[in-house]
Amino acid sequence: MTSRVYRLHSTLELKLDDVHEFFDGYELPVEIEDVEVTRRNNTLIVSAVAAEDNISKYTPTAQLKASITENRLYETEDGWQETPPEPDMGASVGDGDGPQWGSFSDSGQVQEEPEINSKLVEYACFKGDRETVLQNTALQYPMFEVLCDLAKFAEKGTLTAIAAVDGDLVAVRIVDGEERSASVEVVDDPRERESKNTVNWRDNKFISG
């Protein structure tokens, strides 16, 4: 029985270098022989290469799609962080050119605060629903397994999904690299409830013409 993904939502963010590092040592599902990682401007595409010849070369295989953005990181005592470190409290001194921030030395002169080191780092953002993040149906579920492992490798973001595996519905929830408990809840379709509660204005005996 073919497994497939019905619902998916992702907010995963990884450094672009970490994505390449992940695939360098990753053991792919048996249905996938290899993946092709391609960058097109500010878009990253990870395409599956089928391990068997039963898929035509003209059939588009499943692919993961991410947008590439730049985030500024700041050097702190705990390493590089997205949040800049708290500046030391200094004194404000005004002159003809405007105020200056700093601290007083023993001689009474203003000392400038040390400059905070920062750098721009490229991130791959796998964000959106199934049609945005996991495209095409051939090899869809094996590529979904790759996405789940990538979510466990990521330090930031959430992946939630509902998939059918061997005829059973399975819920997946991975938050900041950790698997969390998840379940599938079956509820009434609100559209059906609305249709039952809708008044038939044409054949209503309480309305006179």
Rank of each mutant, 00 (worst) to 15 (best):
R173G: 06
G128D: 10
V175S: 13
V170K: 13
M1N: 12
E112S: 11
S105N: 15
T2K: 06
R193C: 04
C125R: 11
R130N: 04
F144L: 08
D18Q: 10
C148S: 06
P29R: 03
N54G: 00
T61A: 00
Q111K: 15
W80E: 07
D17P: 00
V37H: 06
E194L: 05
T132S: 13
L28M: 03
E192T: 14
M89F: 12
V49G: 04
N200F: 00
V187T: 15
K119T: 09
Q81D: 06
P60Q: 12
C148A: 12
D53Y: 07
L16Y: 03
S183I: 08
Y58I: 03
H9L: 00
P60C: 02
K156H: 15
V187S: 07
E131W: 14
Y58V: 01
P190N: 10
N197E: 14
A164N: 15
V170F: 05
A161L: 05
C148P: 04
V133R: 04
I162H: 04
D166P: 03
T61L: 06
I68A: 01
D203Y: 08
I174W: 04
C148M: 15
A50L: 02
V170W: 08
I162A: 07
H20N: 11
F153A: 11
N136I: 10
D176A: 15
E178I: 13
K57E: 09
D24M: 02
L12A: 00
L134T: 12
I68Q: 03
E75T: 08
F126W: 10
A124R: 06
Y141R: 09
E145I: 11
F153T: 05
F144K: 05
M89Y: 12
A50Q: 09
R191C: 00
V121N: 09
D18A: 09
E155S: 11
K196I: 04
S67N: 12
T132F: 02
F206T: 09
G90M: 00
L12M: 07
R202E: 03
S92G: 08
G157L: 10
T69R: 05
V146F: 14
V35N: 05
S195M: 10
I116T: 15
Y58C: 00
L159I: 08
R72Q: 12
T137N: 03
G96Y: 13
T76Y: 03
N41T: 07
V146Y: 07
F23E: 09
L16P: 04
A151S: 07
L73C: 00
G108I: 07
T11R: 02
N204H: 10
I207C: 00
D168R: 15
R4Y: 08
T158E: 15
A62C: 09
I45A: 04
A91F: 06
V165P: 02
F144Q: 08
N71H: 11
P85C: 00
E185T: 15
S118T: 13
L159Q: 07
D88L: 01
A124D: 10
P142K: 04
I162D: 10
A51I: 02
N71T: 06
P84D: 09
D78K: 10
S10F: 01
T38A: 05
